[in-house]
């Protein structure tokens, strides 16, 4: 097997595994840029995965090939509503944001498994029938050499993740909305004196993270696991947080980190069948994203600083 064929296996699998991380990490960017730490991304992904699978199983006969797409929209909506728990607790009731995020994670797992047992009378759902098709992107996949590696044998939704990160970059850095969002996360009092509604911006940030986390969970469930059980989302949310930090709270950085972590994941799965990689114990690839994030935080590869006010509740009128 030569390098060209190896890349044709690894790269599409990397992009597919990275997409859920990218969506969720972009959600994390919105929330943290608005000054709300969101440890609950894992739980929001769980809700997204759960809703998408249940929706898919319920409506696949009526909706046909459109089912997975509409499942994603349903997951996005429900996850956004679910994220209001975190928003209300941590913004309005001034709860510790980390604690509230932990509660979101526990609640999401408990609630979704409770409902799975209630609806299906067993611990996990059936495998979905309507899935995303693997496609070669028209035109782009015809580019010599590169087309076969980067634009073949993938899912549309994975490429949407990459395009979305560019859109999020534009929104966060080039629009008035983005400027307000960031100012609320850096210095909420200054933003408040300039007439920006801090609470409203923070609610929006958290709800956007809920929506994107829901998409992330749905994409993972619909492309990777194809059913829902207690182990469908198993650390992807935390890995997305890692990607966000590794990408220095920047949308494009988060996308790059997401792709990189996707590569590590895909190597840990397909690596066993490839020359060279099969000699590396999978454990190194599995822990690589986490170790690299810790190293990134210690500043050995450029300092990563969180938005200044993230983690602190804003109390109007308090100096």
């Amino acid at each position: 097997m030569d390098l060209y064929h190896i890349l044709q296996i690894i790269v599409p699998s990397m992009i597919a595994l990275a997409a859920p991380l990218i969506f969720t990490a972009l959600g994390g960017v919105f929330s943290e840029r608005a000054g709300v730490v969101n440890i609950g991304l894992e739980g929001l992904m769980v809700i997204g995965a759960f809703v998408s699978i249940v929706f898919n199983l319920t409506f696949d006969e009526q909706l046909g090939a459109w089912t997975p797409w509409i499942s994603i929209l349903a997951a996005m909506l429900m996850s956004m509503i679910f994220s209001l728990f975190h928003a209300v607790a941590s913004i309005t009731f001034r709860a510790d944001q980390t604690v509230s995020g932990v509660a979101i994670n526990l609640l999401a797992v408990g609630l979704s498994l409770f409902l799975v047992k209630k609806i299906y009378d067993k611990g996990q759902t059936d495998i979905i029938k309507e899935t995303f098709d693997k496609i070669d992107i028209p035109v782009l996949s015809d580019i010599p050499v590169l087309g076969k590696i980067f634009f073949s044998n993938g899912y549309y939704i994975s490429y949407i993740a990459i395009l979305l990160s560019v859109a999020v970059w534009y929104v966060v850095y080039k629009t008035p909305f983005g400027l307000r969002l960031r100012s609320v996360g850096e210095h909420p009092m200054a933003a408040d004196t300039m007439g920006i509604n801090v609470y409203r911006m923070r609610y929006l940030g958290v709800m956007l993270s809920g929506a994107l986390g829901g998409i992330g969970g749905a994409v993972h469930a619909l492309t990777v696991t194809l059913d829902f059980s207690h182990s469908t989302i198993n650390g992807q949310g935390f890995m997305a947080i890692a990607a966000m930090i590794f990408g220095k709270w920047h949308p494009l950085g988060a996308m790059g980190a997401g792709l990189f972590f996707g590569l590590a994941q895909s190597l840990s799965i397909v690596g066993a069948s490839l020359p060279f990689f099969k000699d590396i114990p999978a454990v190194y690839l599995l822990i690589a994203p986490y170790i690299l994030t810790i190293i990134a935080l210690t500043g050995f590869i450029g300092r990563a600083d969180a938005p200044r006010a993230s983690g602190q509740p804003y109390i109007k009128g308090k100096r």
Binding site: A89, F93, A95, V99, S100, A103, I104, L106, G110, F114
Partner: peptide, 22 residues
Amino acid sequence: VPNEIVDIVIALIIFFVASSYF
């Protein structure tokens, strides 16, 4: 009753304690 109900209860208790301001 699925035993996950208790996980839900525990998560809600955390919410309520954390939101003690309320």
